[in-house]
Design a protein around this nucleic acid. Structure first.
Lengths: 282, 282
DNA sequence: GTAAAATATGAAATTAATTTTCATATTTTC
DNA sequence: GAAAATATGAAAATTAATTTCATATTTTAC
């Protein structure tokens, strides 16, 4: 594992002084790799041996070895950790933190995804008579996006963010229909009902939700996407980005399954939009 | 440039002894990063000062600094890159590629973002009498998401994905209103018109679009988000993810600007959703 | 071809950095 | 509240890296 993530993860297990070092390192890892143990100790207001012990605790041979690991973490393309936005952050700071957290969470989500379920879901979607995407709140946005993508495939696709429409649609579903229900928490009662109704009417229900939730239990298939909780500002952030990226995977799988001719058709859809645009000069 | 490549390139310009060091390093760089200057000198059959001079010649501060660069070169094997999906990719492969491309593009987007414009936009949004988000197609999804977020702030916010509603709304806008127009291409005629109408009616127009496009020219402020073109499957993918993350930044900036009390209020909004949910057992 | 100049190299000395040891302070447990 | 466990830092010891300077090698000029 990336040593930066490791530091972020184990932050609570550190002692008071070690945490001081950890915070200095997390706040500017790029500076630390060029600092001596004395400089780092001074910056963290602790002694040099403490820095050394900190390094060893992280399973490195000592300070120079630690710097090597740190340098590798930074080069890895993933110095991304879920850093929390702070009261007094400048636009620069919170922007960086948000982008980095999003990337860190995408990495997490990727690791947690079960690609065989993705594959199975793509199977079902390509064979569906009708595809419905249901979500509420932030997940309605994901459903909206999914409709936008699948609409291009020239398959019957609907999306509702209205709970009554969703219920009516679920009740009218039948064998061969695929209903995709999206909810990060998986605990929205109304949506769990919709999933249940759809299943009673023999539709295949795919949940994009967290594993083990009430919604997950109502679904035939569950695409679970793990992200760190979005607690910062009481708004769903990383979760919906991960869900959207999953939608991209489903849509991509769909087009690949349908073969080359089908993709020519996609190009036509895109070209048809051209007349609504200003020409590019380059 | 990668220091390993640099060594390989400059091999001819080195002196006899330096070349010996270079060859040892090139043949097993992974060992070298854990070796002392003495060990490396011995392995190359030359003296320690020669190793040191070799390091300096490569524009590093000395041997330890050189090792740092070397470690980074080695780690560099897996940066997130925009890998394209291939005809015969398995679910596992295209999932990885899509997630990695998305992360690579977020990194790109972050670098291209001008945080002072974000800051200015947050200013305008916090002072707006009314906020409107307009987009079409994939950008409608982004506008939808923005509404969802800003709605929680208890400010007058609207979102339209219907071009006629957008026009009407733009015509009815006035000084003090902020209109956010979202379009990756920045070339959708209808939206450029909307931006123009809003501006004629004294609204402040913020564009989330690519710099230099017709839409960008109609806006008072442009938040430009660079991503690699989504050419794979003729669908917007990375661009909308980057735009959504930008929305997160704006929303975060908004809440920070509004202060602590305001965030308590956000928590209440979130708590109010609780009764619509199944309780968590843990 | 050879002497002078320039360059390259390494041994030893110096300097700098890291690690260990050990005494003291702080926290936890009973 | 005392004893044990743990954490911390000052100073010493060790280790590693760098500089200095003498010597060797190569290049240049005639």
């Amino acid at each position: 594992m990336n040593i930066l993530e490791k530091i972020a993860n184990e932050l609570e297990t550190f002692s008071k002084s070690e945490r001081k070092v950890a915070e200095v390192i997390l706040s500017s890892p790029g500076t630390v790799i060029h600092a001596s143990i004395a400089a780092l100790a001074k910056q963290a207001n602790i002694s040099e041996p403490t820095v050394n012990r900190f390094c060893r605790r992280l399973d490195t041979k000592g300070y120079p070895d630690f710097k090597l690991h740190l340098a590798q973490s930074l080069a890895n393309g993933t110095p991304y950790v879920n850093r929390h936005v702070d009261e007094n952050d400048s636009a620069d700071e919170y922007t960086s933190k948000i982008f980095e957290s999003t990337m860190a969470n995408l990495e997490l989500a990727r690791k947690s995804l079960d690609t065989s379920t993705i594959n199975r879901s793509v199977d079902l979607l390509t064979q569906a008579n009708k595809i419905s995407f249901f979500g509420l709140g932030a997940s309605a946005v994901v459903a909206h996006d999914a409709q936008n993508k699948f609409f291009r495939f020239n398959v019957p696709v609907v999306y509702f963010d209205d709970i009554l429409m969703q219920r009516m649609s679920a009740i009218n579903s039948r064998q061969g229909d695929v209903v995709v229900v999206i909810s990060h928490t998986g605990r929205t009662k109304a949506l769990v009902d919709v999933a249940s109704l759809a299943r009673e009417n023999d539709a295949t229900v795919i949940g994009i939700t967290t594993a083990g939730t009430p919604l997950a239990k109502e679904c035939n298939f569950v695409l679970s996407v793990d992200v760190a909780e979005d607690t910062d500002l009481y708004m769903p952030m990383a979760s919906r980005i991960a869900q959207l990226t999953l939608i991209d995977c489903l849509a991509t799988g769909f087009t690949l399954r349908r073969g080359t001719k089908f993709r020519d058709n996609l190009k036509k859809v895109k070209d048809s939009l051209r007349s609504s645009r200003f020409e590019r000069k380059d």
